[in-house]
């Protein structure tokens, strides 16, 4: 298969899995990378075609007739021509490489230039195997915490500060920008400028242990107004339970094992090791992009996390069926 065929082959298919691919850019950074990829494919495709053509013609010359006996030739008259061609070939490679290195350098400058436009600060921390996400509250500057769902206003450059609580992870939302490793002891940051509204998916890209495969997160790019509304909602403490079952659920969550690791702001559950649950029901997925948010999945996740995500540090909590229902009822109301 050729690089040229490669190009024709992958582009139409890019749309069918569009939420996590650099081929459907939705941000300045990814768009730059996509153009560079196309340039690379063209240049490399042409070079590959030249090599294949040269090889095919060399083999075609076999038809000149079988070698007389098996005697080697020591005189090679065509070498003078080939020698000149070698210089031309080297020149072609040099020109191609200069083109690509130059384009790559220019793109690097463009990625760096985003720093001047930073308008929003987000802190993302990698944990085995989920993402802690924190925004500044525009009213008082305190940090608002959420998990596994990143919201970004369209057209604004956000600086995402990356930190790790344990091992090396890598933050990657291919539709918006390239990846940046999340390394303990290093203050890495990445600038992203989303340009298209929609849901995208990010995933940890550096091997980080047992559940590296299920350490994903959702990214929602929305209008600035929607974003402000969402942030205001996230800043609020958890809503009070609406019915008796939910009240019972709250009792269990705040007094039982859940509170050891999880926080629900506005209640006595203030554990920090696990994801913040204050507005868990407003998120699209649970367990770091593993399961869709719905009541069945919530209950299943609480009862059997090890079956759904073997090795996860979320504990299996054994509850009476009635209590399990109540907890799911309560968490389902944490919008």
């Amino acid at each position: 298969m050729t690089q040229k065929g490669h190009l024709a082959f992958l582009l139409p298919l890019a749309s069918c899995a569009g939420a996590q691919t650099p081929l459907a850019p939705a941000g300045d950074q990814a768009a730059g990378q996509y153009s560079l990829l196309l340039l690379m494919l063209w240049v490399c495709g042409i070079l590959y075609m030249l090599v294949l053509g040269f090889l095919a013609m060399g083999l075609w010359r076999l038809r000149r007739g079988a070698p007389a006996g098996n005697e080697p030739t020591l005189e090679t008259p065509s070498d003078a021509v080939l020698g000149k061609t070698l210089w031309i070939w080297a020149a072609i490679i040099v020109v191609g490489l200069l083109l690509l290195a130059g384009a790559s350098f220019l793109l690097e400058r463009r990625l760096a230039a985003a720093e001047a436009r930073e308008a929003l600060l987000v802190r993302v921390s990698g944990h085995q195997w989920w993402w802690r996400i924190a925004y500044r509250d525009p009213r008082n500057g305190s940090w608002i915490e959420t998990a596994n769902e990143l919201h970004l206003p369209v057209g604004t450059t956000a600086r995402i500060e990356l930190g790790s609580a344990d091992v090396i992870h890598s933050f990657w939302v291919p539709n918006v920008a390239g990846k940046m490793d999340v390394i303990p002891g290093r203050a890495n940051a990445i600038d992203v400028t989303p340009r298209r509204i929609g849901w995208f998916r990010g995933q940890c890209a550096e091997f980080c242990g047992l559940q590296h495969a299920k350490m994903a997160f959702d990214v929602k790019v929305e209008t600035p107004a929607q974003f402000a509304g969402w942030l205001a909602l996230q800043a609020r403490p958890a809503p009070a339970p609406e019915d008796a079952a939910a009240l019972r659920g709250m009792e269990i969550v705040t007094r039982g094992a859940c509170a050891m690791c999880h926080s629900v702001r506005g209640t006595s559950a203030r554990g920090r090791p696990g994801p913040d649950l204050t507005h868990v029901a407003s998120r699209r997925m649970i367990a770091a992009g593993t399961l869709a948010m719905n009541r069945g999945n919530l209950q299943g996740w609480i009862a059997q996390p090890q079956a759904l995500k073997p090795g996860t540090l979320m504990l299996p909590v054994t509850l009476e069926p009635r209590d399990a229902n109540a907890v799911a009822q309560y968490l389902g109301q944490l919008k």
């Binding site: 930190g163 344990d166 002891g185 203030r270 554990g271």
Partner: peptide, 12 residues
């Protein structure tokens, strides 16, 4: 960098 109960001093 790991959280401890109700406190977390932040990433490494």
């Amino acid at each position: 960098g790991e959280p401890q109960a109700m406190s977390w001093s932040g990433t490494v």
